[in-house]
């Protein structure tokens, strides 16, 4: 494992910790899209099926279990916690899951490395992860008031895939020119979706202003 990959994983983990911290400490999930969080549960469930079939390392297994556990608990808080669920912006979080999930699944059926259940579901999870942030970005654009924790959460979540992109370039040159089109292109799409958000996040940080996305 190289330093970019590790930095990417740590950024991803930190983003989730910040989100859980926000939910637990402030008992509020304002500005967080339940749609996006549910899509992440689907992403992790379909990607980590290999937990049962293949052992890579202690680190790998632990991180997979942490991502599964935390994403499920975030959804649980937002749907069922009696205080937190009342702060959910249901009326603004209107993006439909299946607009993203169905095309991703069809694409995974068409474009994959190997036609097996595990491989197609893994590919589906890669495609779905690339676009799962869309409901969250739409919700942010509708929110007049984005709190710091939510802003930092989305920033770190975007930064994680950008660091993975650097990791893939590094691996290409250090590991026998390993070519992996599916995650590369999906990761590129995923990072590009954040470009606009990154721009306003950095701008508000430099000018010491409150983050607000133009409608």
């Amino acid at each position: 494992m190289n330093v970019f990959r590790l930095a990417g994983d740590m950024t991803h983990l930190l983003s989730i910790i910040i989100l859980l911290l926000k939910i637990r400490a402030t008992k509020s999930c304002t500005g967080i899209s339940l749609k996006t969080q549910e899509l992440y549960v689907i992403v992790f469930l379909t990607r980590y099926l290999d937990l049962f079939t293949k052992y890579i390392s202690f680190y790998n297994t632990t991180m997979k279990l942490v991502f599964l556990g935390t994403s499920i608990s975030i959804v649980w808080y937002m749907r069922y916690h009696k205080v937190v669920k009342q702060t959910y912006n249901k009326d603004q979080d209107t993006f439909r899951h299946y607009f993203l999930a169905i095309p991703c699944f069809l694409l995974a059926l068409l474009i994959h490395h190997e036609f097996t259940v595990i491989e197609v579901l893994w590919t589906f999870s890669i495609y779905l992860e690339a676009v799962a942030i869309l409901p969250q970005l739409v919700l942010l654009q509708r929110s007049r008031n984005i709190d710091n924790l939510t802003g930092n959460y989305v920033f770190l979540l975007g930064a994680y895939r950008a660091l993975y992109l650097v990791n893939w370039v590094y691996r290409y040159f250090t590991e026998n020119h390993l070519v992996r089109w599916i995650p590369w292109l999906s990761g590129l799409v995923q990072t590009t979706l954040y470009a606009d958000f990154f721009y306003y996040y950095i701008k508000s940080w430099k000018n010491n202003e409150k983050l607000q996305l133009p409608a």
Binding site: F67, W122, R180, P183
Partner: peptide, 10 residues
């Protein structure tokens, strides 16, 4: 080139 299905990432 063939894509290697290395699944060592998260």
């Amino acid at each position: 080139p063939e894509e290697k299905a290395t699944k060592d990432e998260l």
